[in-house]
Simulated scan of single mutants.
Amino acid sequence: MWTADGPPVSVAGFLYPTRMILIRLSDGTLFVWSPVALSVDLAARVDALGPVRHIVAPNSLHHMFVGEWQAAYPEARSYAALGLREKRRDLRWDEDLGDAPAAAWANDIDQVVMRGNRITTEVVFFHRASRTVIFADLIQHFESGWFTGWRALVARLDLLTAPRPTVPRKFRATFRDRTAARRAVGQILDWPAEAVLAAHAAPIPHGGRAAIAHAFGWLLD
């Protein structure tokens, strides 16, 4: 497993860092989660790891650079979270992501769909070999100073700069089906997680299950 950080992107006036995760599957091909901007240097580094065969958009917000990767790797299949196929009709989508892992990575990766949120439906992945759970937007944490001025105040209110990584307040407030969300978190906590990787938080190398339980404590209590 590897991570690669791309340049920040502006979303609703806020700068967000970008991060993708690459996993070499047991057949030697690469699973590319939430691709970032594709530079010549990054493409060379990726190509040295193996052939890109799976481009994965884990929710309806992480799609900005999928087209670049589809153009660079036409043999790769693209996988869309719920709602993304309709949102990005300009892109080619080969499969929709569900609760069952695709056959291509079923030997290496588990997944669960976090349904019932008005902002986005997110697919959470678990890489068995490294015991790592992968979140896109449902767990976030920014260091103090990343946001400034009025944006820092909004970020604090949204729990983006809470002492520990957690679910932003906007996502907490927009779960219309908490029963379904609670069920999905229960499945995630059943995984023997050691580490957590997220697009917008520092890696958590140890104590991953406890970190997830803390982040979703508001939902589980």
Rank of each mutant, 00 (worst) to 15 (best):
A199C: 15
L189W: 09
A80G: 08
V113E: 10
L189Y: 10
L138T: 14
V66W: 10
L138C: 05
V154R: 03
A76C: 11
H200D: 15
V112L: 10
A201T: 15
I109V: 14
A202V: 12
T3H: 11
Q140K: 00
M64G: 08
G186D: 08
V185R: 09
V66P: 06
T161Q: 05
S130C: 09
P168N: 15
P58G: 13
V32E: 04
W105Q: 07
H200C: 10
V196F: 13
P51L: 07
Q187N: 09
I119K: 08
E68A: 13
M114S: 12
E86M: 06
R209P: 00
R115L: 12
D5P: 01
F126L: 05
A72Q: 12
F65M: 10
T120W: 12
T132A: 14
P8V: 03
T18E: 07
V11K: 04
D177I: 11
T121F: 11
R53V: 02
A184Y: 06
L49V: 04
A81E: 12
G6S: 01
L30E: 02
D47T: 04
D137Y: 14
V9M: 00
R164K: 03
F216I: 01
Q140F: 05
L220K: 01
A103Y: 07
I134P: 14
L160R: 15
M64F: 07
A37D: 02
D27R: 09
I139H: 15
